Amino acid sequence: MLKIDLNCDLGESFGNYKIGLDEEVIKYVSSANIACGFHASDPLVMEKTVRLAKEAGVGVGAHPGFPDLVGFGRRNMNVSSAELKAMVTYQLGALDAFCRANKITLQHVKALGAMYNMAAKDEKMALAIAEAIGEYNPCLILLGLSGSQMLKAAQTVGIPFKKEVFADRAYEEDGSLVARTKPGAMIEDENEAIQRIIDMVRYGKVRAITGKEIPVEPDSVCVHGDNPKALDFVVKIRKRLEEEGITVKAMGL
């Protein structure tokens, strides 16, 4: 039986600024990556989003990023391994406090934006993130880009990991994501994005931006919930997966 986790970045509002359609999108995914206050979110938003996830029966993951509210965590930062490790530990502790208060278990950790993309290629950064997770709670799942340094670091540290693919992002031939600053980085056509998901889950392949087919090993598909079309997109993805006989299930189950 084929199964896949659908994960979505949620809890990214901040104070009076509302981002995303969390209350609606969360009904159609199986895991939520919740912002931890560094790139987005605040304590009230974190608490609310954890509660939403609990009510929806969705797995909760910490979504740590660089301390960059203005850049939404998408700008590269030059930090030491010690700094990076401390950043991740701090954010895990913050979100886990709300999980404990709501009597649910933190399921996974997924780095955000620039941190995610840099660590996918940088062995030292990947190891710092994996070590922070392992020392905090070695049962937490590290969610990382399929074929990346993050997954190798998880193996080195000895923590569980799951391989992630993206519904609406273009790939380079080496399996990395095309930078958002480049043309064609985002897959705009919904039908194309959905077909790419089916090809990745059922056949373990995706067409890179060059046109070459490359292998991927998906355990979880990321769908973004921060644009007006997000809800319709997530609903269509869920429907198509079910039509294909692919079960949607949280990565921790």
Rank of each mutant, 00 (worst) to 15 (best):
L2K: 15
D5K: 09
N7C: 07
D9H: 04
L10A: 11
L10K: 10
E12L: 03
S13N: 03
F14A: 04
G15D: 12
N16F: 13
N16R: 15
Y17E: 09
G20E: 05
G20T: 10
E23R: 11
E24W: 14
V25W: 05
V25L: 14
I26Q: 09
K27R: 11
V29Y: 04
V29D: 10
S31D: 11
A32R: 10
A32K: 08
G37S: 01
S41V: 05
M46P: 14
K48Y: 15
K48A: 13
K48I: 11
R51L: 15
R51C: 10
L52N: 06
A56H: 09
V58F: 09
V58L: 06
V60N: 05
G61Q: 14
A62M: 12
P64I: 01
P67H: 01
D68R: 02
L69D: 05
G71K: 04
G71N: 04
F72K: 06
F72C: 00
N78V: 13
S81I: 06
M87S: 02
V88P: 02
V88F: 00
T89V: 07
L92W: 04
L92S: 00
A94I: 11
A94D: 03
L95G: 05
D96W: 01
F98S: 00
F98D: 05
C99R: 07
A101G: 05
K103T: 01
K103A: 00
K103Y: 01
I104H: 05
Q107E: 15
K110Q: 12
A111I: 04
L112C: 13
L112G: 10
G113P: 06
A114T: 09
Y116P: 03
M118G: 06
M118Y: 11
A119D: 11
A119L: 06
D122K: 04
E123P: 03
A126T: 07
L127N: 07
A130S: 12
E131N: 08
I133H: 01
I133R: 00
Y136H: 07
C139S: 15
C139V: 09
L140P: 07
I141C: 10
L142K: 12
L142P: 08
L142N: 08
L142C: 13
G144R: 10
S148V: 00
M150L: 14
L151I: 15
A154V: 09
Q155F: 10
V157G: 05
G158A: 14
G158R: 05
P160D: 11
K162F: 14
K163W: 08
V165D: 00
F166P: 00
D168H: 05
R169T: 00
Y171M: 01
E172H: 08
E173F: 12
D174H: 07
D174M: 03
E188S: 15
E188L: 15
D189N: 15
N191G: 13
Q195V: 11
Q195K: 14
V201Y: 04
V201G: 03
K205A: 00
K205M: 00
A208V: 12
T210M: 12
T210E: 15
E213L: 02
P215V: 04
P218S: 02
D219H: 14
C222M: 03
V223G: 01
D226L: 08
A230T: 07
L231W: 04
D232S: 13
F233C: 02
K236F: 11
I237D: 03
R240P: 08
R240L: 04
R240I: 06
E242C: 05
E244N: 05
E244P: 09
E244Y: 00
G245T: 02
T247V: 13
K249Q: 15
M251G: 15
M251N: 12
M251Q: 13
